[in-house]
Nucleic acid binder design. Structure first.
Lengths: 239, 239
DNA sequence: ACAGTATTTACACCATTTTTACATTCCACC
DNA sequence: GGTGGAATGTAAAAATGGTGTAAATACTGT
């Protein structure tokens, strides 16, 4: 069964939309604020998020950007604001569809079905728990453990790990990594990468002097290599 | 570069949309009828299809259903008809988005970007792999293996291999190879080529003294000869 | 002020690239 | 069919620059 997270502050609309979605056979969870919405997204791992832009705390663009740093779950934005600028901004931030209030139930459900249909194809990607060797990483909850022992990563370390993991198997150039983790301004400081990759190796590799997961491509960049094809983006939804 | 197929009968609108898409860096192909559109979709394998519902021959629902029988390419429907029923029908048939005319260019492009972004994520998983003999080369991931054993190539070695492979069967002059790999400044140092071709042979040929794949054209240059016609650019057909 | 973190600095080390030297093959010409 | 010179192949050194490690310093929020 599909789980849909509804981030919406108006009680009436929540009820209205929830009933419609339940009629589709979806399980519906609700959040009233964006911060709460992000938490729920991490906990529930829904197959779809419906987001109202008109929430009191924070804007939708920010919500989508932060969500996208660890999840590819489809986002359908619903808003009373219908200016072109609003739409473009949030779509480019990573949202998948935009529906202007007032909307018809039928169209909402059709768009929900379209998004769910497509996300089913690649939903192995969406699940944010990555396992390799004895290590488990929950990108959504920012939790890392090695051999059942929880491992503490700093903010930068985690961000770097997250970028490497979401591009598993591919070489990421120094430039690209620096832009993603530190921001465009520091795209020349290759030193940072050596230090933080060293940290990750120290904390996660079985033998930090013989790295297996975090490989160096000299003169190019670094790659995360899921060993033995054992990257299981496994997830149990306990229905 | 992304290819977009535009199925639309009105010349004005075609021109209008084509210019906008080209501004995004897309390559645009056009079809005036649905039957023509299906043919083009099969031939070009575009990354996105924009479909006008108001075409003279046949309806859009039919178009999408037939397309979906063999392709998962995203479809953005554009239509003057805006009844809820129209939208639901074509979305449920397999379309991914629905935009009502008249629409703003900005919103159209934002929705196009959203669809392309998601379809790219799907395709990134299976990158083209070149196979010859017991060797496999994944150019996108910079991975090379021989008989299931991963082979390490240096930056220059890989660059050279990449140029040779993408021109399989063709003779590449010393000059050309040097310009591609080392840059224009070193186009006279033929020694480099001998050394690095030797490296590739050492690492990839079954018998480096009797090269089969990396052949010398004396006085001219080198060629990569995919033996047994077995160059398989295996690639996903989702487009 | 303190602890945790990010950034800077310093240095030893190693892989790759480039240089250098010499053996081998090819091919035209005798 | 040899022979010599040019082109090519091999094998090592030398030079370059990237990389890993450790530690000191600056920063940040509490």
């Amino acid at each position: 069964m599909n789980t849909v997270l509804l981030v919406e502050d108006e009680k009436e609309i929540r009820r209205f939309v929830r009933l419609a979605l339940q009629g589709e056979g979806c399980q519906v969870s609700e959040a009233e604020t964006m911060t709460q919405g992000l938490q729920e997204a991490a906990n529930l791992k829904p197959q779809l998020i419906i987001l109202d832009l008109g929430l009191p705390d924070g804007n939708g663009v920010d919500f989508v950007q932060r969500l996208r740093s660890w999840s590819q779950v489809p986002v359908l934005v619903v808003s009373a604001r219908s200016t072109e600028y609003d739409k473009i901004l949030v779509l480019d931030a990573g949202a998948d569809d935009y529906l202007t209030k007032p909307f018809s139930v039928g169209e909402l459900l059709a768009r929900v079905r379209a998004l769910l249909r497509r996300s089913r194809a690649d939903n192995e990607l969406n699940t944010p728990v990555v396992k390799f060797g004895t290590i488990e990483v929950d990108l959504a909850r920012r939790l890392v453990s090695k051999a059942q022992q929880s491992v503490h990563l700093t903010a930068m370390e985690f961000k770097l790990l997250s970028v490497l993991l979401t591009n598993a198997g591919r070489v990421l150039t120094h430039r690209h990594l620096l832009r993603e983790v530190w921001g465009g301004a520091h795209s020349e400081h290759n030193h940072y990468l050596r230090i933080y990759v060293a940290h990750l190796r120290q904390k996660l590799e079985d033998d930090p002097t013989q790295p297996v997961y975090f490989q160096t491509e000299i003169g190019v960049g670094y790659r995360f290599q899921p060993q033995m094809g054992q990257v299981g983006f496994s997830q149990d939804m306990s229905a």
